[in-house]
Design a binder for these strands. Structure first.
Length: 577
DNA sequence: ATCGTAGGCGCC
DNA sequence: AAAGGGCGCCTACGAT
């Protein structure tokens, strides 16, 4: 089958569909397609040659089941800007994370989730399934055939096409379910963003984050010593680090510094009775004792030596790229997650994140995103007015008659559900001056305490753990309810901020791709875009402009101002703090 | 041996 | 200024 023929075929399909186009991809078998009417399908031997040109011309929305298709596309030169990822949209609809395609199908068709068949059960069910058409992905009882889910959909081009058709049916059902959300248009928009974010995650995993391996190794060496030649060498180096702390104790005192209980006892013997040995608690005592100073320094070094040491380098960095697994909404509230240290690289190691020769990073972070999101989702007029300032906390401080830093702590505390600290005066001041925003947070907390699920502004379901405390322990039940309240209060803000961020990220992804630039890191409110040096200024402008575009699509309050600070840098460490 | 939990700390 | 929300990953440890 020649490529030109397929392009023509696709163009015809796109014209007819004027909307959804489902795709299932396999590197060897090619493409399975179904139009919106589900009436036609085509297949080709080459998954990449055919799709490229039609995206901007016809603007269909590609539909696929989930990550496996996105992964194939992430490695290819296909500029897909619009898609519908059934699994990603399912997470939006039902909350939580990590669902299988079989579970998604059951959700969408009101099938009992406890009866979802799995591969292991094939033999048990064969009698019920006898005589059924194994080339139908749906069993007579309505469940997906597990052998199809498990990869059987790739067995022939005909199967690919049926699998694509079924994805289209799933997407159609999801479309209808999103229509039942309080704000269907925004929920649909979130579904689009979440789907592209899933594709972006596949790309992030595929491309990796540029890392200067020599620089990384030299930072590690500065903390953990030279690369150990064998196990004994490694243990010797470890004892050397431990010695820097232990020498502050008397001789013969052997404390396992990696055991918090032993450290606590050791501190008690030295006259310090603490409930735990957390760094913020010890930090206040740092100046009073060389032992504590040494312990805190040891812990910093130990973090790099263990989590970000040579083992980390060997396992996750290769070919000048740090690669990990990316999830577009693994967090309970819908934030992105990443493994391999991509989301928690210690600041001292960030000089190792370096643009490749002839390239730069455009780094950008959303300024004060959470209080701005609070203004948008609550509609509080006074808080909306405050977003006009670059520093939102300044006008808040003026209204409250407190210092700027006190105002900041008060606002953050209100969103996190702080129970102590913040002076009662500042909290009362917030309630008096920003009653709509505070009532929004209070109501979220109340629903959480009651164990009721909530919805972010974008339509994501936030699951509140049942937490039914049976017999007796009233204190524990109250504590659990309070915890759910804090969780719910924060989840509506954190989740909404995650939606805004993803809208921003996918717009950036699309706008910068013609300039041969790539998003290489997403970090909750921060983006790193790797770009050819001669495009850097243009890309920086696009990234900044994309904030306003994201606000246009996402924000329910047009008057809320969102900002990003952008800079062009060669190493991540050059970023302003 | 393998699993889950907790304390701890990295980042936002 | 206070120590609250999220995540991933380390070690130690007790249960299986």
């Amino acid at each position: 089958m020649g490529t030109p023929v397929v392009i023509e075929e696709l163009a015809n399909l796109g014209m007819e569909a004027r909307g959804l186009l489902a795709v299932a991809l396999h590197p060897d078998r090619g493409i399975g397609l179904a139009t919106v009417a589900g009436s036609r399908s085509v297949a080709t031997d080459d998954p990449f040659a055919v799709i490229g040109p039609i995206e901007e011309a016809l603007a269909p929305r590609w539909v696929w089941w989930g990550r496996s298709t996105a992964e194939v596309l992430a490695g290819g030169p296909v500029p897909i800007a619009r898609c519908w990822d059934v699994v990603a949209v399912d997470r939006l609809l039902v909350g939580g994370s990590r669902v299988t395609i079989g579970q998604v199908w059951a959700h969408l068709n009101d099938l009992d989730p406890s009866s979802i068949p799995s591969m292991g059960q094939l033999d048990l069910l064969s009698s019920a399934d006898e005589g059924a058409d194994k080339d139908d992905p749906v069993r007579p009882d309505g469940y997906l055939r597990p052998e199809w889910v498990d990869g059987g959909w790739r067995d022939s081009t005909a199967r690919l096409a049926r699998w694509a058709e079924l994805a289209l049916r799933a997407a159609t059902i999801q479309h209808a379910l999103l229509d039942q959300r309080p704000d269907p248009e925004r929920a649909r928009s979130t579904a689009h963003c979440e789907s592209v974010a899933e594709l972006l995650c596949a790309e992030l995993a595929h491309h990796g984050l540029p890392v200067d391996e020599d620089e990384a190794a030299s930072i590690i060496a500065g903390v953990a010593g030279p690369r150990p030649t064998d196990r004994a060498d490694e243990e010797r180096e470890q004892r050397r680090r431990d010695g820097d702390v232990l020498r502050h104790l008397g001789p013969g005192h052997h404390v396992n510094l990696r055991n918090p209980e032993e450290v606590k006892s050791m501190l008690r013997r030295n006259g310090l009775d603490l409930p735990d040995t957390r760094a913020w608690r010890l930090e206040k005592l740092r100046d009073t004792s060389p032992l504590i100073d040494a312990l805190l320094t040891w812990r910093k070094a130990e973090r790099i030596a263990t989590t970000y040491g040579y083992g980390w380098l060997d396992e996750h960095v290769s070919g000048g790229r740090l690669r990990g697994e990316w999830s577009s909404s693994d967090g309970a509230a819908g934030r992105m997650t990443a493994s391999a240290g991509l989301h928690n690289l210690p600041a001292p190691m960030r000089s190792a994140v370096a643009a490749e020769p002839g390239h730069r990073f455009v780094r950008a972070d959303l300024g004060q995103i959470e209080p701005r999101v609070l203004a948008a989702v609550s509609g509080d007029p006074a808080l909306i007015a405050a977003t006009a300032e670059d520093d939102l906390y300044q006008p808040v401080a003026e209204r409250l008659g407190v210092d700027r830093d006190v105002a900041k702590v008060a606002v953050l505390g209100a969103m996190y559900g702080a129970t102590t600290g913040v002076s009662a005066g500042a909290l009362r001041g917030l309630q008096r001056n920003y009653p709509v925003a505070m009532a929004f947070l209070e109501e979220a907390a109340r629903q959480g305490q009651l164990g009721h699920d909530l919805f972010t502004i974008g339509g994501r379901r936030i699951r509140i753990g049942g937490g039914s405390a049976p017999d007796g322990d009233i204190d524990r039940a109250l504590a659990a309810a309070a915890s759910r309240g804090r969780y719910a209060r924060n989840a509506l803000i954190q989740g909404a901020a995650a939606e805004f961020f993803k809208a921003w990220a996918v717009i950036v992804r699309r706008r910068v791709s013609p300039h041969r630039a790539q998003v290489v890191l997403c970090l909750h409110d921060e983006l790193l875009v790797h770009t050819p040096v001669e495009q850097a200024a243009t890309v920086a402008d696009l990234v900044a402009d994309a904030v306003a575009e994201a606000a246009f699509y996402w924000s329910p309050e047009p008057a809320v101002r969102f900002l990003a600070e952008t800079s062009i840098i060669a190493r991540w460490s050059e970023a302003k703090d």
